[in-house]
Amino acid sequence: MRKVLLLAVAILVLGILAACGGSDEGSGDSGSEGEGSSDSIKIVAAHNQTNEENPYQDGLLKFKEVAESESDGNIEVEVHAGTIGTSESELVEKLKTGAADVVLVSPGFMTSTGIDEVNLFAFPYLFDSYDHWESVVQGEVGDEMGQIINEESNNDFKLLGYWTAGVRHYYGKEPINSMDDLEGKTLRTQTSGVISDFWEQTGAVPTSVAWGELYQALQQDTVDSAENAYPYFVQQDHHNTDNGQYITETGHDYTTRFLLTNGNKFDEYTEEQQEIINQAAEASVEAEWESLYSQEDEYKEIAQEDGAEINQIDRQPFIDLAKPLQDEYAEEYGVTDLLEKVREAK
């Protein structure tokens, strides 16, 4: 009986020691992992283009490369090319809810959040060159717009940088040699706001077609024409459709896109993480611009090789038409001062 009792006590003591040892070891491991997890974050970065040759993809891959290398892998970036949303409204919503951390959106979709001022960057013929555009977004106007976005969204959105989606041109079933040639033509574009008003005043009929359905709409004569930049419509083969083979370089929009993160979540990161994210964003801007600029020439050549016909047009009548619309909408959105600064930067 005594032997049995001693054996039971020994087993109990060993069990206690093992538990204490395991607890100490586990405590040490979880503490180490806890420190690692507090220093490690995962960022979901997304755009709405499904073609991975797109400049958006190049920009986000550069963001990933810099963020991960500068953080020694403590910042992981997961890039999605249209896989968590092919519409910008989806991406904006995911950013607000935390399902995405970095997204790319256009001024038109930002207005759905109630920030009307960003529509300034959608005004037709606001810019006359990339040099003009770059000087504006990298200068005082760009800084002020970033503050507006952050303040009016209550820190839901923080601007990380300005990207571009190229220079938009007209393409359709026949070339346009003057504004009169647009009379009565259905044109896939925005159907409200300053962009719609502008095209209506040219004589065209703004028509809504989802981007993913536009190839079929052009091929089946649902719309007569559309407008976009070479890397986008050529990658989608719109120039090979019956109603997309004639390109007229109207150059009506040097586009602006916003690289956004959730400001509230960004504020929770450490100062080092914030610095690395900002550094990655700057690198992504340079990479996206470089990719877009080179692809504009590349895809214009592809369009010509595929048989598309490209013509130039006198843009001055279009510019003259756009100017009073710019004034009207700038007053409506409360950005008259910013509009004047953009004009002075030419």
Rank of each mutant, 00 (worst) to 15 (best):
V4S: 11
I16Y: 11
A19G: 08
G22E: 10
E25D: 06
A45C: 04
A46E: 02
A46R: 05
H47F: 03
Y56N: 15
F63C: 06
S69K: 15
G73A: 09
I75P: 01
E78R: 05
V79N: 05
H80M: 07
E88W: 01
P107H: 02
T111G: 02
G114L: 05
D116E: 14
V136A: 00
V137Y: 01
E140D: 15
E144R: 09
M145S: 04
M145C: 06
Q147P: 07
I148M: 02
S153W: 02
K158T: 05
Y162C: 01
A165I: 11
G166T: 06
G166F: 00
H169L: 03
G172Q: 04
T186R: 00
V194G: 03
W199Q: 07
G203W: 06
V205M: 12
W211F: 08
G212V: 06
A217V: 07
D224M: 04
P231V: 04
V234K: 01
D237W: 03
H238M: 08
N243S: 05
Y246T: 06
D253N: 11
Y254W: 10
Y254D: 00
N264D: 13
F266I: 06
A281I: 09
Y293S: 11
E305Y: 06
A308P: 02
A308G: 04
E309K: 12
D320K: 12
L325C: 08
Y329D: 04
E331I: 09
L338P: 01
R343D: 12
K346R: 14
